[in-house]
Design a protein around this nucleic acid. Structure first.
Length: 756
RNA sequence: GCCGGGGUGGCGGAAUUGGUAGACGCGACGGACUCAAAAUCCGUUUCUGGCGACAGAGUGAGGGUUCGAUUCCCUCCCCCGGCACCA
């Protein structure tokens, strides 16, 4: 079933692929895009793409940064091209706030989205710099008086301007821009910088501050420029130390701590403390100081409060063939003209072959050449396609009303939505799920929907991991072997001692356990297992292996157990049904073992319902069903009532296992006399009266260690329990010579006698 | 470097709110059935000592809180995943 879960996760990807092939879906994507364009929610601006100067193509992000080494460093250039964007940042506040309403979502996904949106409160401050100015964003306006230099990103306009007559600076900037490509190891990259020679003017003191280019300042966040306060920011501190820039303390520390400009210490960036060395602001607490400083800046028109989001607007243009065409025609005279509604959809030609040299649409005259809808003259069709995340943002809405060719969605979408239970891989935790939430809100605000959120409950599956094997050639390049093509020898502890390739019998190296990926050739196709054992067994086995949110190392050990379980179930139910003794009975006719068995049956029904529903722990649900089956198979029914009980039990078992082993369950359900499908039979009901117990097991501890067990009537009080416990031989032995100090009773569960 | 998730028998994992650690399954070992094997069924299976009843140790390491800690707190180690030096 993990496979099935996995496939449900893939459904997102399938939906995207199918949707992009479906002109009907294109039509509404394009219709809605044009509507957003008209509203100004979609807009055009220059964006940066990774460009391969050798193959002359745009590189996908993962080709550049995922460490597979396709293209790195010098082989990637940045290129500025016009792109279409959606104003997702306008919804940043709502997307953040509504996370609190998604209580059916895993906490970690909500945390990841909140971090991604990245709201921070602070101020923007403007520093004069010659005839220009530098605007910065800071979360710490209280430290303004401790700013000792400015730092700008390599791409910052002022840096570029200064580089025009400074070759060394230009070279440094070029180097920074190249290195920025590999974000993966940015974390431990050394801080580097260079003085531009420019001076910025402190807006309150008038002091001149040097302006540096620094590789730790990012153009994509805030203003691409910072005021550096080395005394209270660890990165600025490190940078100042390296380049000998001044450090000025402006926030007091705890009494215990002394400020040392040579050494960074934890409290420097802390929240406590008052302003010092800050002139008129001295003595104010941090937040008051921040307010006062921002007020002073506002008076001089040099700053104001501001909330900054990390989230960027969503660039939806993609320079690739497969995707929904962006319905725009570029005319030399009329500019960018939307394709008229009656001409939608713009469809992709299907006969093009991507050859790795860029978007084939650009070279297809039949697609590119178009008449301007406004003036009728020859014009050029937009060849960028939409990000396929656009398609996955609302496919589930279209499912509800796929046959409507008059409207994007109709009232049926409102009836079906929101999705009760959404399942997908954890890799979709941020992008897909955030875009789908955003799109839902967009459609709501366009009057097409009345829901705020698309998915009520979310299950994010863990990754499936598998062993990797490789053989390195002389140059160190690794050739990866699929685990299925490798013969593994293990030592007594199950550890891999050696492995050889089946093909040539020569040894291969074990490369550790990693997430299944094409690049490591460690994917496993469950189809072979399905062919051998059947789909029900493979579903049962993979659902039983681990809870769905946990990552799972793929192993076929254990699949035999699932197979045996289903075979036993098949035999037991058939033999019961063939006995033909299925008459109704009254529970009070049962006694002894039979009554216990019926209690276990109803406890199991309750547990399995809770595990499959609330807890989403399918592995323990299956374990409980297995336990029940073991008990049922051991039981030898005598008389009509006990045969009736067996019938009640097997009916319940078949209904409970049906979600996991649907084919066998369906057949067994008919065998048990079901007229309709097991899936219309409903969930077995818990008979609360069957749950009552005549006796419970009370664990007896002495000083927290288990020394005995008592069978007692439910609800027994502490003193009676203690009386019984001290009568137990082993308990008495451990109490011998000691005085009872304290007795703790956990009702119907445990009695702890504290003695010394 | 930062963030998130983990670390429990030979293995996958269970223990839901601080209350019997190891459910369920795999594997292994022993037995029944069989001329034999497979399949099936029964039993044992955390480690150490003991014929046993039992006793001691034990959930990555070390400390703490508690009558009681896999669970809560502190420090540290290791593994997996993600990433954005976010001002």
């Amino acid at each position: 079933m993990r496979t099935q879960l996995r496939q449900l996760g893939f459904a997102i990807d399938w939906a995207r692929e199918l949707a992009t092939c479906d002109p009907d879906y294109y039509r509404w994507n394009q219709w809605f895009f044009l509507r957003l364009l008209k509203r100004g929610i979609a807009y055009k601006k220059t964006g940066t793409v990774n460009w391969d100067p050798v193959d002359q193509t745009v590189l996908a992000n993962e080709q550049v940064i995922d460490g597979r080494g396709w293209r790195t460093g010098a082989l990637v250039e940045k290129r500025e091209i016009p792109m279409y964007y959606l104003r997702i940042t306008d919804y940043a506040d709502e997307l953040l706030a509504d996370l609190d309403t998604l209580d059916g979502w895993p906490e970690r996904v909500r945390a990841m989205q909140a971090n991604w949106i990245g709201k921070s409160e602070g101020a923007e401050i403007v520093f004069a710099c010659g005839n220009d100015s530098i605007k910065v964003f800071t979360t710490r306006p209280d430290t303004l008086m401790g700013a000792t230099f400015m730092a700008v990103a390599a791409e910052h306009p002022l840096a570029l301007k200064a580089a025009r007559n400074n070759a060394k600076l230009a070279a440094f900037i070029e180097q920074c821009r190249k290195e920025e490509v590999s974000e993966a190891d940015l974390g431990d990259q050394e801080k580097k910088g260079m003085d531009t020679g420019l001076k910025a003017v402190h807006p309150l003191t008038g002091e001149e501050l040097p302006v540096w280019v620094a590789n730790y300042v990012l153009m994509g966040y805030g203003e691409g420029a910072i005021m550096a306060v080395p005394a209270h920011d660890e990165r600025d501190f490190e940078f100042a130390g390296k380049y000998g820039l001044p450090v000025r303390q402006v926030i007091s520390l705890d009494d215990k701590q002394e400020f040392d400009p040579q050494r960074w210490q934890d409290g420097y960036a802390g929240a406590s403390g008052r302003l010092v060395n800050s002139g008129e602001f001295d003595g104010l607490a941090r937040d008051q100081g921040a307010q006062a400083i921002v007020a002073a800046l506002e008076k001089r028109d040099a700053g104001r409060p501001r909330t900054q989001f990390r989230l960027h607007d969503w660039g939806i243009s993609r320079q690739r063939y497969w995707g929904c065409p962006i319905p725009i025609i570029h005319c030399d005279d009329c500019g960018d003209v939307p394709v008229p509604e009656e001409d939608l959809p713009v469809v992709l030609p299907e006969n093009l072959v991507p050859d790795g040299s860029g978007n084939p649409l650009e070279k297809d005259a039949g697609f590119v050449n178009a008449d301007c809808p406004q003036c009728g003259r020859a014009a050029r069709r937009e060849t960028d396609t939409m990000d396929t995340f656009v398609d996955s943002s609302w496919y589930f809405l279209r499912y509800a009303c796929h046959d409507n060719d008059e409207a994007m969605v109709d009232e049926r979408a409102g009836q079906w939505m929101p999705v009760d239970q959404y399942i997908g891989g954890i890799e979709h935790a941020i992008l897909h799920l955030l875009y789908a939430r955003y799109w839902t809100k967009l459609m709501r605000d366009e009057g097409l929907l009345s829901i705020d959120e698309p998915f009520s409950r979310l299950l994010t599956q863990g990754m499936v991991l598998a062993e990797t094997y490789y053989r390195a050639d002389d140059s160190g390049r690794r050739q990866w072997f699929n685990p299925a093509d490798v013969e593994v020898s293990r030592d007594r502890n199950g550890q891999i001692s050696s492995a050889v390739a089946r093909a040539d019998g020569r040894p291969v190296e074990f490369g550790g356990v990693e997430k299944m990926a094409k690049s490591k050739n460690n994917g496993v196709d469950p189809q072979q297992l399905v062919d051998r054992y059947g789909a029900d067994t493979v579903r049962l086995f993979s659902m039983f292996a681990a809870p769905p949110e946990q990552s799972l190392e793929w192993s076929e050990a254990g699949v035999d157990g699932a197979w045996r379980f289903l075979r036993r179930l098949w035999a037991s139910v058939n033999s019961h049904a063939d006995s033909g003794r299925t008459r109704a009975f009254r529970p009070d006719q049962l006694s002894g073992q039979a009554a216990d068995l019926r209690r276990q049956l109803h406890e199991t029904i309750a547990k399995v319902g809770d595990d499959m529903g609330r807890r989403q722990m399918w592995n323990t649900a299956i374990a409980a069903i297995m336990e029940l089956c073991n008990a049922l198979q051991r039981f030898r029914p005598e008389g009509e009532a006990e045969h009736g009980l067996m019938h009640e039990a097997w009916e319940a078992v078949v209904r409970m296992i049906a979600p996991v082993a649907p084919h066998i369950s369906e057949a067994l359900w008919r065998k048990l006399g079901g007229e309709h499908s097991v899936f219309s039979a409903g969930w077995p009901e818990v008979d609360k009266t069957a749950l009552e117990r005549a006796a419970v097991t009370l664990v007896v501890q002495v000083n927290g260690r288990v020394r005995g067990r008592l069978e007692v009537a439910p609800g027994i009080d502490r003193d009676s329990a203690l009386d019984l416990a001290t009568g137990d031989e082993n308990v008495a032995r451990h109490l011998d010579g000691k005085t009872v100090r304290k007795v703790i009773l956990v009702p119907d569960k445990l009695l702890n006698i504290v003695a010394s």
